[in-house]
Computed example of a mutant assay.
Amino acid sequence: MARIHPTALIDPAAELADDVEVGAYSVIGPHVRIGAACHIGPHCVIEGHTTLGQGNRVFQFASLGAAPQDKKYAGEPTRLEIGDGNTIREFVTINTGTVQDAGVTRVGNDNWIMAYVHVAHDCQLGDHIILANSVQLAGHVHLGDWVFLGGLTGVHQFVRVGAHAMTAFQSRLAQDVPPFVTAGGNPAEAQSINAEGLRRRGFTSERIALVKQMYRLLYRKGLTLDAARQQIDALRGEVPEADADIALMQGFLIQATRGIVR
């Protein structure tokens, strides 16, 4: 059975699975849907057209589904969609989308979002992401799967961070970070590949070596971006298990309208 603290304020129109837990003084609005095995801590506010999947844990003082911090927003019924198995820590704020974009902010599955993180309107987050304390995402940011952003990282609007990329503490991102790359600084610069993260995810030494080749072509050979892309494409077939990694990199670079960190 659901365990709802008697001081929680839950709109009768909200949809909560039978086993959802809601802590003291939390407020849940009429357009909210919360899936099975979710735990909502005390003093949380979940509002707007917000959906949480299964097995999410939301800690105290989080704010989910509030109106976007966009002066163009005029009350449209935009959405926030959160997947399964996410941990959302204290004072996290995640806003709904805007009609100027897809109209929805999305958070995937199995993400670890630490205290004081802000996820602005229309951000699109993949799976298995770690956002350390006080990471700040401006509107329309896209993060790929397995991204790790170090504490106090700030990300400019419309920036994309590719899968398996990583940033150091207090990084400032104003350009895209390609997949597999570790970046740091203010402004952020490419430092290396995220080799340890790849090893932890089961990448073979051969795959990691090919990722290093792609990195060298992008950052160590003095090539233009187009020339680097051509040489990266020529690596196909050298390590067949890494062809998907090449495709991931190429797809990302094609869409790098803001340029990439250098």
Rank of each mutant, 00 (worst) to 15 (best):
Q157K: 05
P6I: 15
A165M: 03
G222L: 02
G108F: 07
P68D: 09
R33C: 11
N133A: 14
A168I: 06
R220K: 15
Q175G: 01
G48M: 12
G251C: 06
A242G: 03
A188G: 08
I4P: 07
A256W: 01
L9T: 13
H39L: 07
I254D: 09
N109A: 06
D145G: 07
A138G: 10
P12H: 12
T7R: 00
R200P: 02
V239Q: 04
P240D: 02
N194D: 05
P187F: 01
T93V: 06
G108H: 08
P42R: 06
R216G: 11
G139E: 11
G197H: 13
G65M: 05
G83Y: 04
F169R: 04
I46S: 04
N133M: 11
E238R: 15
L198E: 01
A138S: 12
N194H: 13
V32Y: 04
L218I: 12
G85K: 07
L137F: 06
T204G: 13
L225I: 06
R207K: 15
A234C: 09
D101K: 14
M249F: 10
T50I: 08
K221R: 15
G237N: 06
V177W: 03
R207M: 12
H49S: 07
A37T: 13
I46A: 08
A8D: 04
D127Y: 10
H164R: 02
A234F: 03
M1I: 14
E21W: 13
V135I: 11
E238L: 11
A209F: 08
A14K: 05
N95P: 02
I4D: 02
N186K: 12
L248D: 00
N194Y: 10
H156T: 03
Q230W: 07
G83H: 04
H49T: 07
H164Q: 00
V117T: 11
G75Y: 04
L225D: 03
R262Q: 14
L149V: 00
Y25G: 06
F169T: 09
G222H: 07
A195Q: 10
R106F: 03
P30I: 07
P77A: 13
V155R: 01
D101G: 14
H5S: 13
A209N: 02
V104F: 06
V155Y: 05
A120R: 01
I34E: 02
R200M: 12
D84G: 06
I88P: 03
S171G: 02
S26E: 09
I246S: 01
I260G: 03
V99G: 08
A14L: 09
A174C: 05
Q170N: 11
N133R: 08
F180M: 11
F148K: 04
Q175H: 14
D243E: 12
G55V: 09
A244E: 01
A234P: 00
I130Q: 01
R160P: 01
R229A: 05
F169W: 06
L52F: 08
G108D: 08
R106A: 00
Q170R: 13
Q100E: 15
R258D: 09
G53P: 04
K212I: 01
N194G: 07
G75S: 12
R79Q: 15
T78M: 02
T182I: 12
E238Y: 02
E238H: 14
V119T: 09
A120M: 11
G222I: 05
S63N: 11
